[in-house]
Design a protein around this nucleic acid. Structure first.
Length: 156
DNA sequence: GCCAACGTTGGC
DNA sequence: GCCAACGTTGGC
């Protein structure tokens, strides 16, 4: 059982979009970075828990959480010529990119902003702060607990 | 919109 | 395999 952080741009796809998914889950596709791909393919497992992070927006930060309902499998978008995620170098025999399925769990009463995360000594080693550009990243169990506590205390 | 950081590409 | 050029990400 592991913890992850997934980035998304809310203008493209937000946690509200995830909450409203008719099927009850989203295909987390379009990840086109090898380090993130390796995590999706090799590490992320069903029932792992996920922080949803909004980037490139007004309030940048962790906005809620979700759960992995299907482990890594080849991203169908890479085979679709009409998709912006199409990759002509990928084939069914030799897929390059992987996706997972995630289901909504909760939206925090208030987002935990990046600025607030940076203020927490307990979170100073988060991959988020060390490797800013990775869109799928591991979260340490202690970091996970700390973040949920902060999110709870914001509810008061 | 700017710009720093970082990932990818391609010539050699 | 190096490294410069280029493209993208993402905070501000």
């Amino acid at each position: 059982m592991a913890y992850w952080l997934l980035k998304t741009e809310p203008d493209e796809y937000s946690i509200d979009d995830l909450r409203r998914e008719n099927r009850g889950f989203a295909v987390w596709d379009g990840i086109r970075n090898y380090q993130a791909r390796n995590l999706l393919r090799d590490q992320v497992a069903i029932d792992d828990e996920v922080l949803i992070y909004h980037s490139q927006c007004k309030i940048v930060g962790v906005v809620g959480r979700a759960v992995v309902v299907r482990a890594g499998y080849p991203d169908p978008a890479q085979f679709d010529p009409d998709s912006k995620y199409y990759d002509p170098k990928a084939s069914a025999d030799n897929p390059r990119w992987y996706c997972i399925d995630v289901a909504f769990n909760e939206t925090f009463p208030r987002p935990l902003s990046l600025a607030a995360i940076k203020r927490e000594p307990a979170l100073e080693d988060m991959v988020l702060l060390k490797q800013g550009r990775l869109s799928v990243q591991p979260v340490d169990p202690a970091e996970w607990r700390h973040i949920l506590q902060l999110a709870d205390s914001h509810a008061a």
